[in-house]
Design a protein around this nucleic acid. Structure first.
Lengths: 87, 87
DNA sequence: GGCGATTTGTACGTATGTATT
DNA sequence: CAATACATACGTACAAATCGC
């Protein structure tokens, strides 16, 4: 099971929460903590675990999708994209 | 067959729809209109009858489950919990 | 055992309203 | 005013369990 421990995002930071969240996941992928094909927790679960709003997680995931780092499918989940490895 | 007439929930109210729905069912149980062991209509049917979204009914049912008023089983349905009577 | 219908459960996608900064 | 964030609600797709045939 993928964990993605609570990374304590900072609401007071100049970088917005959705950016912090996206960068955090991107980092986990780069480091290899999240492997291609691996399923992420549900967005609403992440919202709960991270203590931020669902729509903020949505936006973070949108960022990651646009960067090609993850792929989402309705009814299935969000997965680390194939070819998102640190070479 | 259990009916649970359309109670005309108010989308403009400060109390959210899922809360209104949960309170409505809870009231029916308290009054004895719904007896322990009795099967509720399917969640999607309730959504239709009440004119609200399935996921909103889901959340109302979640509330009721957390209050111990109903029990749900996959493939079977949702039932009024034993010990949910008005004493 | 298989198949279809029923029903709850899970999950992403989208829209809107409100509050705060 | 605009961007961010939160909460609610609706829509849709996919999944698993149960039951009757």
């Amino acid at each position: 099971m993928v964990c993605l421990m609570a990374p304590r995002f900072d609401p007071a930071s100049v970088t917005p929460l959705f950016e912090q969240a996206a960068d955090y996941v991107a980092g986990q992928i780069e480091v290899g903590e999240l492997a291609p094909g691996q399923k992420l927790p549900a967005e609403r679960d992440l919202a709960d675990e991270w203590g931020i709003a669902y729509q903020t997680v949505r936006r973070a995931m949108r960022e990651l999708r646009e960067r090609g780092l993850v792929v989402s499918r309705v009814g299935k989940g969000t997965f680390v994209a194939s070819g998102s490895q640190p070479t």
